[in-house]
Design a protein around this nucleic acid. Structure first.
Lengths: 236, 236
DNA sequence: GTCTATACCGTGATAGAC
DNA sequence: GTCTATCACGGTATAGAC
């Protein structure tokens, strides 16, 4: 009998009631612990035992809930992917349904600001999730998870970009998104490298600053693409 | 006695001669095998035993040469970092010492083309190395290896950029490099994600295409930064 | 000096008892 | 829903072969 196993004090005593407490369920505790560990050490760098210990539950519980370590990882990744997709989709809809015509900047913001919000959230779980996405995105073996979880909505964003960049060829647009995606995920990784490189002038974990620069950088890049494409269009 | 243990046929018979054969040393075989495995599965996803087996050597040999698994990883990472740094430094020197004034494009090319060359090399080891760098760069725990191996030269490149972008503030410049770095390493990762997203229109492993787009995208982005900074400078 | 065989000991995943 | 026993596997040290 583990002495520290009861973070829900009120739930058990009157056995008629169910889950009135707002304490996180043990399932969520496992997800949170796994998220924190995976985000720092990767899939193979974490053991189920570590997850269980960090969550304060028995070793066997993660497997009970999620079938396998892989299942746990998928659950961790999927959980907040839903949240991010919802927020991005709502933001995009707001832009596209607005009275005013959508602009390049408004679309980029709809894509990026929800990530910024996560990165800056009080709940450290969101920051951990950002790191996790960064790893998955450049991992090779795990990259298919990006496709599964995000591509449907990303294609909508690319459609939106196509509308405000009418002269840009599709291939350019896809490569442009690729560049944006790389910069965005590196920002999400928050590795502290730029801190060192800039001698403290820039800070990885200053979300406000990081994502504002990300937006203005890519605003310039995409606008330049459009300008150049239009010029060629005229000339040709 | 392993029957398949002799990839150097001529070396041993006349014992007077030393290493005339151009066959790779066993040390290099271990490095190559480790590189291939690490680049796909990460540090913790690979066991020393797998490395040994892939290299066709005894389990203890990697540790004999490199002290520990970590030592092996460091050696793998450092080996081609030297090559890349040399090529980049030579390219940068050519640009800066030229009669013609350096341009934004020439500097970006000096930075990026050596990577493109590696990515497109016939030796698959170079491609594996590209993937490895991509992982390390967005890993959190391993990112310090980037600093150790690359920052000295990267600061030289940032200096060069500062010269051709005289109105851009330092902070902007560092964030710009950050964005470039993210896009570049995602390109190096070659995950095939853009293939899927673009429905086959773009291909991760078409190095020619990928890096040309990378260059023109960032040419536009940095030039826009300079233009905007100059405009503000005039106005203010 | 280069390399192999093997043993050690901690750790991990998982199945099945409770 | 929890605990535990099992058993395989991992990194590395060591003894010695060539």
């Amino acid at each position: 009998m583990p002495p520290d196993s009861a973070p829900e004090p009120i739930v058990k005593s009157p056995k008629g009631r169910r889950k009135v407490s707002d304490a996180p369920s043990r399932r969520d505790l496992v997800l949170d612990a796994a998220e924190a560990l995976f985000s720092r050490h990767g899939f193979d760098g974490v053991t189920v035992r570590q997850v269980a210990q960090a969550a304060g539950v028995d070793v066997a519980l993660p497997n009970y809930y999620f079938e396998s370590k892989q299942g746990l990882y998928d659950a961790v990744f999927g959980r907040r992917a839903l949240v991010l997709n919802d927020r991005r989709e709502a933001a995009l809809r707001r832009v596209m349904d607005s009275e005013d015509a959508p602009t390049l900047e408004s679309i980029l913001r709809a894509f990026i600001v929800p990530v910024q919000t996560m990165h800056a959230a009080a709940d450290p779980g969101f920051r951990n999730y950002c790191r996790l996405v960064a790893q998955v995105n450049s991992s090779g073996v795990l990259a298919p998870m990006m496709t599964t979880n995000f591509d449907r909505l990303i294609l909508k964003f690319i459609d939106a970009l196509r509308r405000v960049l009418p002269h840009v060829a599709d291939r350019e647009l896809y490569w442009g998104y690729h560049c944006l995606s790389g910069a965005l995920t590196l920002t999400m990784a928050s590795t502290g490298r730029i801190d060192h490189l800039s001698n403290g002038l820039c800070r990885s974990d200053d979300a406000e600053d990081a994502y504002e620069h990300l937006i203005s950088f890519h605003l310039g890049a995409f606008q330049a693409m459009e300008d150049r494409a239009r010029a060629i269009c005229r000339k040709g």
